[in-house]
Design a protein around this nucleic acid. Structure first.
Lengths: 345, 345
DNA sequence: ATGAAAGCGCTAACAT
DNA sequence: ATGTTAGCGCTTTCAT
């Protein structure tokens, strides 16, 4: 098999005896009312025959546009983020856009480096789940107006920007209410010590749900680095030790839940008999777990669809450069055995 | 904040009164013994000061090289593949290469489309876990010699190509032997009905381990589409029904294991008392599962390192265009409760 | 030791 | 309705 040689517009031009311009117009669908149908057909047929594909680098060099969207997730190997990524890619491709993924690892420095890297490569849009303490950088990125900027999963209330997020307040409230309805008298909240809007919103939702049911909220806020660590587990166990009356736990992320379940296993706590459990973000392991774990699941397809829809809309930019796209979507409570005390209902 | 305007070589040239050529040489480290140290320093300082970054599209247009490697996994959201992807990206970036990811979903058509898509975008190398019945396409891709081609996880014994894979035979053998050593008298194998080399190698490893211990192998080979389906689970349950004496199972993939565990749960089978279990590919859920599941884990960092090392070596191409890179790495048995009968040892 | 200039493939303003 | 042409930023051959 021989090396395939790419066909260029120039090749088509010489072969068909038609000027480069005409061909370019036809390729870019700008031929209407300019070029004769006959020529259009001739060119289109030839293009199909030889399988011509425009050279992306040349297009980019000329237009300054790459038709590329970057998705900077906290961790692209996390099932939640990778599921969203997959859904988005599908839609992006259909609209002639490519997607690139990367992970910030919730690290400011790394996120800044990545942004600068992709700016060098002239991407058209950023979809970002910002790391902590990143508001300043996001603000600057938006102000430069070189790329469309869309935040995901987290937002800043003091900056005007585009975002797609879960209704965290309602989600946490629903989950906590479910624990209460299952008979829990003392529901604890295990969350992240973080400036993420989603985290404070979840905590508030929990507080709102329990405010008329128990004397005071019980919460443990772990630093990001301890989510999966033994140290985090120890803190969690201490919490249970200090509050012997805890009979329900709401975990704010699936990572916290996994580590928490490990801790409960180490303590030989029986779920749901001694302790009912609900966590944010569904994962296949939660269904398989003994007992199966109830979750407040995020609507992955809807989130992905809105993210891309919004980003593409902003890329078209019909409403000026200061347009924003903001969407808050409801989560869904999936009840499984971990909160089935059967006390009521 | 104002729009950042990119600096070009021309800008530097006008600003410093030095020719474009000279500057290009300096940037590309081709200035040795050509340009005076004084000029080199002047240019380098200025570049650092203004933060000049070459325009990737122009470079690509000119050289035909993109410094980009594509990783086409079966499913990039699968924890195993995404872990490998993450490791590779790190090393690739350090060597000046970018990585792009995508999923074939084990679909021939889709894989072909993706290859053609990335050929249009002129990537420099493909790292591929081919879908089924894809040998022909891989052969053609290699023959074209436009890109470096490296296979991962699967190889073809009748085609000469580069690959990095697990030692599947030894892995399966070790796992099956462990089940036997744990006291199992009738070990079954649940695998994929597939032409993947890894699948036949695992089956052979299993057969080799049990050949002197039980009268005959017991195996169930499911089609890819039934790995996660209820139909697959039903077939699995039927197997157990037909062979009441099965007391050990080796699952060939983590997907099969997850579905199998669901099936065992539905049947109320006690692990490891009634049935010992080992599966390929570790996942966090296996450690958390009750009981925790023993696994034959793949050496993710080593696999990723070899993949990238090999690909970069081939990209340098010092040993001619027909050079290949082939590596088979050993897996590691992680013993947990699912095969702890404590009969021996 | 340094520079001039061609050309990669494409788009679009400007002819005709 | 169709064509000519400049130029995007860069690498590299060939002068000087």
């Amino acid at each position: 098999m021989k090396k395939k040689q790419r066909v260029s517009i120039k090749d088509i031009s010489t072969e068909l005896g038609i000027s480069i311009t005409t061909i370019s117009f036809i390729i870019n669908k700008k031929a209407k009312n300019r070029i004769s149908d006959e020529v259009i057909k001739k060119v289109e047929d030839y293009i199909k025959k030889v399988g011509y594909k425009p050279n992306t680098s040349a297009q980019t060099l000329r237009t300054g546009k790459t038709k590329t969207i970057v998705f900077m997730a906290e961790d692209i190997s996390d099932p939640f983020f990778s599921a969203v990524a997959k859904e988005m890619e599908e839609i992006a491709y259909k609209n002639g856009y490519k997607m690139i993924y990367c992970s910030t690892e919730n690290d400011k420095e790394r996120a800044s480096e990545l942004i600068s890297l992709f700016q060098d490569r002239q991407v058209d849009a950023f979809i970002i789940t910002p790391p902590e303490n990143f508001q300043q950088e996001i603000q600057e990125l938006i102000a430069q107006k070189n790329e469309v900027v869309m935040l995901f999963d987290r937002r800043y209330t003091t900056t005007d920007h585009s975002y797609v997020i879960l209704n965290n307040f309602n989600g946490a409230k629903t989950a906590a209410e479910k624990l209460i309805a299952s008979g829990c008298l003392n529901v604890a909240y295990v969350g992240l010590a973080s400036d993420f809007s989603c985290m404070s919103e979840r905590l508030e939702g929990y507080k709102d749900a329990i405010k008329n049911h128990q004397s005071q909220p019980i919460s443990l806020l772990l630093p990001f680095k301890d989510v999966k660590s033994k140290a985090g587990r120890t803190q969690f166990k201490n919490l249970l030790d200090q509050h012997k009356n805890i009979d329900g736990i709401l975990f704010a992320t699936n990572g916290l839940a996994i580590n928490g379940l490990k801790g409960l296993k180490e303590l030989n706590k029986k779920i749901p008999d001694e302790l009912a459990v609900i966590t944010f973000d569904d994962r296949d392991l939660f269904e398989l777990h003994s007992p199966s774990i109830s979750v407040l699941s995020q609507p992955v397809p809807a989130l992905a669809t809105e993210l891309i829809k919004g980003t593409l809309q902003l890329l078209k930019g019909k409403n000026g450069p200061n347009e924003t796209f903001q969407k808050i979507l409801p989560g869904k409570l999936i009840t499984r055995d971990s909160c089935n005390l059967g006390v009521y209902d």
